[in-house]
């Protein structure tokens, strides 16, 4: 029979191992990116030594990312077993579960769309998140304070974490859009350098970030509504403009504006992509600033 402390140690080992694996995945993607400067898309159709290396590095990266995902998933589950509850009760747990959601969103998207090129950014972001989590945010497992003892914790926070993962992925795509947009001249012709030729067209990037946001915007809406229902039960009001609530509202408003902007003349394309980036940053700001430095009732970082 394993004790709580054994499970916690096991969880830490899984998290550290997944960091190691994802680091190697990051290195493979870095090699791939380096080779992409010398590989043109035609090389991929007719394999040559350069393009074989390029393709192989990408495949290794993806395989390792999947392995890292499995390790992280085990780490998150072990953490939950150790605490005897859902593994999102403090900032360390939000971070590891959030990184897991982000990886999951990436791998699911990868099944349907060609987003292998995002691997470098995704693994880097996951490494930074996990690195911050284990060094700065780590707290031993502990039971929940009475305010968090509610079924809504499972629903509200889970929905928020998944939304966050997908929003950040959409952000990466929108950022790629803005970078690729610089290689387009006034007549709409694209003059991309070699490394950027592997990336999808501007229209495809725009479509992809839209789909990701449209997919998860209802989930975010649900998360806010679930939070409001919980707040009504815990604090006696469903909306009180607490800093966390305010920023969740700002994120909601910003993504709503993004969805509208894509069908409004003069706001399509570049401006919509900027809006998407802005909306994603409000989410990140809410997560980092309000949890750690902000006042209000959502101070559950455990720090």
């Amino acid at each position: 029979m394993m004790s709580k402390a054994d499970w916690a140690t096991l969880s830490n080992n899984f998290v550290y191992s997944s960091m190691g694996i994802i680091f190697i995945a990051f290195i493979s993607f870095a090699f791939q990116t380096a080779w992409s400067f010398r590989v043109v898309p035609q090389d991929l159709d007719t394999p040559n030594p350069k393009s074989v290396k390029y393709t192989k590095a990408g495949r290794i990266g993806i395989a390792l990312t999947i392995l890292g995902f499995i390790f992280l998933l085990s780490g998150v589950i072990a953490r939950g077993v150790s605490a005897g509850r859902v593994p999102w009760g403090n900032m360390y747990e939000f971070s590891i579960t959030g990184a897991l959601a982000f990886l999951f969103a990436y791998l699911v998207t990868l099944r349907k769309y060609n987003v292998q090129w995002l691997g470098l950014v995704v693994t880097l972001a996951v490494l930074l998140t996990l690195g911050t989590a284990v060094t700065l945010l780590y707290v031993p497992t502990a039971p929940l304070v009475p305010a968090l003892k509610s079924t809504w914790l499972v629903i509200h926070v889970c929905a928020a974490i998944i939304s966050g993962g997908v929003f950040l992925l959409a952000n990466c795509v929108a950022a790629a859009y803005l970078i690729m947009d610089r290689y387009q001249d006034e007549d709409g012709n694209e003059h991309r350098p070699n490394w950027a030729k592997q990336l999808p067209t501007l229209a495809e990037l725009d479509q992809l970030s839209y789909r990701l946001v449209a997919l998860v915007f209802p989930l975010w809406t649900f998360s806010v509504i679930a939070g409001a229902i919980w707040a009504e039960a815990a604090w006696g009001r469903y909306w009180g403009w607490d800093p966390k609530e305010t920023w969740a509202f700002i994120t909601w408003v910003a993504y709503a504006a993004y969805l509208h902007a894509r069908v409004t003349a003069g706001w399509k394309g570049k401006r919509a992509a900027w809006l998407c980036l802005f909306a994603g940053s409000t989410f990140l700001f809410n997560y980092v600033y309000v949890n750690i430095w902000g006042a209000g009732r959502h101070t559950y970082s455990g720090l």
Binding site: T246, F249, I250, H260, G296
Partner: peptide, 25 residues
Amino acid sequence: RTALILLLLLGVASIPGSIIPQRNQ
């Protein structure tokens, strides 16, 4: 276009309340 600008304005306008303390809170 106006709705979009008002929507963004509403978001931006609610920022100070999360930084400056509020009487009712």
